[in-house]
């Protein structure tokens, strides 16, 4: 078996464990920031275990099929990344996963999940330009779209791509569903859309959404690591710091409205993303 395959398979096996653990630590730190004691670190696993025990209540037939595809494509995207495949393929596969999730919510047909799905579409529209800029910038910096090439690039990429990194960090808040951009589905149901996208899902399918989110967390953090791949210890530190900052941002912001989310992500993409790409272009020429 090739190294790539082993890497991809170990992602499939270990990512949920790591993702769940991160989620547990996240909940504990969040609780402490709010002056609470917080749940046990393993609580997310207990939650998912309990969700799996529950009856699979559905509002519409086959709404859960979309969730199956969502999880499948999230795992597939992560495998692509960990197998060192094409970055563009990873991005589009991830987008496809989001689309399945949105379709599932539309299928759910409750007004809450409908509005949640519309908001999620707008959010996807908001963060997608920045992700594409990131891919382009990685190519310009390393000369390859292939993650396997990017990861062995000798130069510390953050030096070349500071704007891209900051921009990516900005949309990470959306992708990790953290306040202020948790408007399509918040981790706690206290918003006008209840839990937005996920309102109509219960039991095992909700557990699948949760597991998919763990996978997502892991490969998004892996993406952060790419910027620092040349110096592994720095990469690990960056991942920890980034995630901690995300928790902090989650706790010091009110939930924004979708207009702000879209406008600001585009602004960030235009200034930081495009700016960085433009500078790279000037530095390297094409």
């Amino acid at each position: 078996m090739s190294v790539r395959l082993i890497s991809a398979l170990s992602f499939v096996v270990f990512a949920p464990l790591i993702g769940g653990l991160i989620s547990g630590i996240d909940r504990r730190i969040t609780a402490r920031m709010q002056g609470r004691f917080g749940p046990p670190v393993l609580q997310p696993f207990y939650d998912v275990y309990k969700l799996l025990q529950k009856e699979n209540v559905i509002a519409r037939v086959r709404q859960n099929a979309y969730i199956d595809f969502y999880l499948l494509f999230v795992i597939f995207s992560g495998m692509l990344l960990f197998a060192g495949q094409d970055l563009l393929l990873f991005i589009f596969s991830l987008t496809l996963a989001s689309v399945f999730f949105i379709l599932a919510a539309f299928k759910g047909s409750s007004p809450y999940s409908l509005v949640g799905a519309q908001r999620e579409l707008l959010l996807v529209m908001g963060y997608e330009p920045m992700v594409l800029f990131a891919a382009v910038a990685f190519y310009m910096a390393t000369g390859s779209f292939w993650v396997s090439k990017i990861i062995v690039h000798p130069v510390l990429l953050i030096k070349l791509l500071p704007g891209i990194f900051l921009g990516f960090f900005y949309i990470l808040t959306i992708k990790l569903r953290k306040s202020p951009y948790d408007l399509s589905t918040s981790h706690h149901g206290h918003q006008e859309l209840v839990k937005g996208l996920t309102t109509e899902f219960a039991g095992p399918s909700l557990a699948m959404i949760e597991v998919a989110h763990w996978y997502e967390t892991v490969f998004l953090l892996a993406f952060v690591y790419l910027f620092f791949a040349a110096t592994p210890w720095l990469g690990a530190l960056a991942v920890v710091v980034c995630y901690f900052l995300e928790i902090l941002i989650d706790n010091v912001f009110a939930r924004a409205k979708w207009e702000v989310a879209v406008k600001s992500s585009w602004l960030v993409a235009a200034v930081l993303g495009f700016g960085n790409v433009a500078v790279l272009y000037l530095l390297k020429g094409f």
């Binding site: 969040t30 989650d250 009110a254």
Partner: peptide
Amino acid sequence: AADAFGFESLFMHSWR
């Protein structure tokens, strides 16, 4: 109110 506009930590601290 903090909870309604999605500011969970502010909510918790007000109640603390």
